[in-house]
Design a protein around this nucleic acid. Sequence first.
DNA 1: AACTCTGGCAACCGCCGGAGC
DNA 2: AGCTCCGGCGGTTGCCAGAGT
Length: 548
Amino acid sequence: MRFVQMSRTRTNDSGDRMVSKDQTDSSSIDEGSCGGVLGRVGVLKKGPWTSAEDAILVEYVKEHGEGNWNAVQKHTGLLRCGKSCRLRWANHLRPNLKKGAFTSAEERLIIELHAKLGNKWARMAALLPGRTDNEIKNYWNTRVKRLQRAGLPLYPPDVCLEELNDGQQNQNYSEWNGGDALHNDVSLTNNYDIPEVFFDNLEANHGPLSYAPASPNIYVSSMPTQALGSLKNFNSLPPTVNHGRRNRESDALLPGFWGSDINKLPSFDPAQIGSYKKVCRPFGPLFPYDATPNQNPTPFGDSITGSHAFPNGNFSPSRPLSEVVKLELPSLQVPKTIINSWGTCPPAPPSPPPLESINAYIQSPPAMQVQSKCYLPQNSGLLQEVIHESRAKNRTFDKSLSSSVVTTADGYGHSTMELYEAEWGDFGDLRSPLGCSTASVLSEHTPISGSSLDESPPVKALPDGGDKEISAQLDFPRGDALLDLDCFEQSSDYLVALLNEDFGSEYVASPTSALSQGWGFGSFTWNNMPAACQMSEPPSDNVYGASE
DNA sequence: AACTCTGGCAACCGCCGGAGC
DNA sequence: AGCTCCGGCGGTTGCCAGAGT
């Protein structure tokens, strides 16, 4: 999976094989970075270190110890600034440095630490003996890149669970105990973020089928099925598209996602599933239909905000920054204030923004992609934040879902739950075979075609409040195509190929069997399924660990 | 064989905080 | 209090190698 750290030596071992273009950069007299200036010698050297320089530095440290790095140049004549010396020593020369690829345990630890700490590379390095912050950072960034391309979340389910459990220990608030905890959480998350799930999948699906209504990669909730759900993204790609790259990625897809050694993946514990059901259920399809805006002031979901891992590796910090003493922003983050300034989404008003603005977004994939890119940066990367917030939100799910009423073609109102059951009955469960969003499902199979806003499909007023509208018109262009069963079958075949390639056919005989086993392909997965929809027990097989 | 894309890695850059004066 | 120096940290860049087309 992860390339074994190459034995190649770019710098010095092979005798200055590599020469940087600015190996001696006399222009970089930058006090802020590396000094650059040196009184008597002239210019400081930049670029890769040579073995001779290393030897000089090692000798110096042996003699004088670490620290006082700016004195190195004085004492040794080494044309390197103090910072460069320190880095070289810390990252390559100091003893007890562990070289080579990260072990599975280390990778696992990094993931867990990142879930807890965010981009605190130095702190992680302190907990990983022999590893440097730079190493960890590089590893993580590469991982983020890979997963982002694959449209996968960053944290495996058990890591989420651990964080979840940790958080539960720390936050043992009751569900309706005066609503303080919940209220605070909800009120503080009143930031009207467009759920990242949209952008996430739009990004993941950008390309020939960028219009495809990707199922939201609902992070925690869909963890066990996330990989399968994400395979959908590849599913939606024509087999002729970039096959080689895809194969490469498919190779990285699951093992890379869950760790370097798939066999070491934690078993899928039904008990954990219970936790998922309990905690994560609401994340998925709820957001466009949340019928309890009073408790759920954000139009998207408090059910969603913060519940999703971005493919860039970070989670949405829907949990307000104000709640975090000092939130370290991962590499691609911007202050929360920017979140509310994206696109047409208004800054947090006291009431949910009009659905029109939301729909406008959803129906403008290109713009969404742009927005997505703009949006990505603010994720905190702190899994705990997400879980913390999600806890306060998931409670609204059952109520909202069961109370949501949508007028269907028969002219009668149906609860969204009824619609789910009706629409997905053919599949034996309530999952979208292609991970179609609830929105597209409903919009496709109700008179509210929603293919165009111009048609002004009726917006459903909820019985419990005239101003609570269901965005039944929420739709993706061409969403109907993805509901087509033929399309599904084709995609399924492709999925089978992928699955067989990655897992071996013994793991998943067919996508339909996978479905029948409770493995969702998209937004409707076992774990984000409303409780009422979970009519059968989740799969007990440990798909990922089946080889054990 | 040439090209492209991606992963991996080393190193640099800029900012920040602490210490000392 | 203000300044400078130093070191630490996180983000970014640039290069090479490998894989695929």
